[in-house]
Design a protein around this nucleic acid. Structure first.
Lengths: 332, 332
DNA sequence: ATCCGTTATGTAATCCGTTACATTACAGAT
DNA sequence: ATCTGTAATGTAACGGATTACATAACGGAT
């Protein structure tokens, strides 16, 4: 591979001149520039970005950390991040952790050692305190999934309130016996949605049957497992509030396999409003979150941080909205 | 941020010694090592990987290029890539192009300039010749989607044969009038599947009605649009062969919206066997491809390339298999 | 006491750019 | 002819690590 020296030699100029041509191009004679450019072409030269980044102390790359790309939800969030990043000439790289702390630490290492200028965390397996300790001084924003023990700017919806509203929606449709399919304590969003669920049920004077509160996770498989367990208990609730659309889809599919039809026999509500929820049969009643905007705003904050400012506000709660579809019907 | 010099100074040793402690640790007195380690901890030092990578001329990172993560199909392929990479201490970064050549060129730049040791291309928007010109000498493997004008090792299934078998399956179920929902000429996989479709139809002496051959793309939206157009012609085929499961799901949903039920009124066959195809209602009859293995094998090849060897074989055709589910029923 | 071979450590070159600073050339002013 | 300021270009320091090579220290053999 050719280096800048080779180019300089071939063009008969100094490396500084080559660099000037490569970058702003100020104060270079047209004739000189021509020579340099033709040398670049002849040698098929591309500057080694490691050298450049090392010197400039910036890479103009940002990392998006998430546990899996198999949930469509993230894809629009990432799109928002990317479009905002592109406007400032940043590139986005996605790192998947698969819920493996070791893999995640690996990515943290890249951040600590300046391989990326900053990161947006969509999920994390690590403890907030550990993240805080490891990443102090490094520009990081959390989006969707927020750990308060990791003090960074963040953007998210109000998960608890959204869950309250979703639960109330089910109650207003006449459902009394309502189950909750969550993802356990690990994820704040799930915890808060469960909180909202419990709060609203209590507020409505409705009992919560704990065997209908199941924590299998966000994915399709989680929905299937939760529904299986639900079927094991003799009686079914009127409705189930699921922590995600993927979970809801899994649940509906599993129930259908046993002849329990949604929404005829039981109503199921999702969360997120991913594409699947529109397309699924029955289409899934859910809570929309502004995925693209979450991503875009998070990236805006990150750019501020990278620029050395503290973004204000440094926490942003965006709107959500219930989307009525087919999977929830009035209790008759 | 502390540098190796700071550590060396604090520990009262030279930078070489610090580096030795950091790396293999050969020939360092236990006492010296202790001092160095405590200095590292005191300064919260992490080596700057830009410096290291520059010197070592390797980054141990590989790039996976794809156009979107919203199609689940890729997620298992990527998993295969990652697991193979992890065994050799490589990290995987995902770059999304969104079908935008400009974004893709951006990632090519990273490859050309040594920011990554190599890449697996799952899709590309660019012309094979341009890729070949830009990336000569850079370790690249293509997987799933292969451009023959870009001469790299690759791994894929035999798309044409798979499509032949899928079409024959439909024919054997008694379907005569069969449509094809493809993704146009841009993607080789779609082209080859269409080829297989046409070949088999001709072989069976069945006419192809060109208004039932629609090229809207791989995604859910594509399936919906294609189905809409199908509905615009008065008559429906007996069955439709879709280029992907997501496309099939979109089509089924759209048809259902107009009261056309799958498989009662029309059969729909997908391709890929992503999770969605099991979960969807009706579940989607499809052609399985070994997603994980494709990724794993592609990464094995890439590692060979990075090691300076030519992988042999340097093209790998893996098995596929029809999976029978609910969306195709015998024509009565 | 001398020499040799390890082992432990240090010095400095190197990777490849960018950029502060130095130098040269030249046009225009005096 | 001399001076000054600006434009064009070059030289070398620098970013932060790794590593080839040099050196020092020390134990053991002669």
């Amino acid at each position: 591979m050719a280096t800048i020296k080779d180019v300089a030699k071939l063009a008969g100029v100094s490396v500084a001149t080559v660099s000037r041509v490569l970058n702003q191009g100020e104060n270079v004679q047209p004739e000189t520039e021509r020579k340099v450019r033709s040398a670049i072409k002849a040698l098929r030269y591309s500057p080694n970005l490691l050298g450049r980044n090392l010197r400039r102390r910036e890479t103009r790359k940002i990392l998006v950390l998430l546990n899996t790309i198999s949930n469509q939800f993230y894809s629009r969030v990432v799109r928002g991040i990317e479009e905002c990043a592109a406007e400032q000439e940043y590139s986005v790289m996605i790192g998947m952790t698969h819920g493996d702390p070791k893999l995640e630490r690996n990515f943290l290492e890249m951040l600590k050692t300046k391989l990326m200028d900053g990161a947006v965390f969509l999920t994390s397996e690590l403890d907030g305190a550990e993240l805080a300790a490891q990443l102090q001084g490094i520009p990081v924003v959390q989006a969707c999934e927020v750990q308060s023990t990791f003090p960074t700017p963040w953007v998210s919806i109000d998960n608890r309130r959204a869950a309250c509203e979703a639960t109330r929606y089910l109650v207003e449709k006449g459902h009394r016996q309502i189950g909750f399919f969550g993802a356990g304590d690990t994820y704040g969003s799930s915890r808060q949605r469960e909180e909202g669920f419990r709060l609203t049920m209590e507020g409505a004077g409705l009992p919560i049957r704990e065997e209908w509160v199941l924590d299998e996770g966000f994915g399709v498989g989680a929905g299937i497992r939760a529904a299986e367990r639900l079927l094991e208990f003799g009686s079914l609730p009127d409705a189930v509030f699921c922590v995600s659309d993927t979970c809801a889809a899994g649940a509906i599919r599993c129930l259908a396999g046993e002849g329990v039809l949604v929404p005829r026999d039981i109503s199921v509500m999702g969360f997120d409003n991913i594409r699947l929820s529109e397309v699924f049969l029955p289409s899934i009643t859910t809570t929309w979150q502004p995925q693209y905007e979450i991503g875009y705003k998070a990236m805006e904050m990150l750019l501020r941080l990278i620029g050395g400012e503290e973004p204000s506000p440094n926490r942003l709660v965006l709107e959500h909205r219930i989307i009525e579809r087919e999977s929830v019907s009035p209790k008759n």
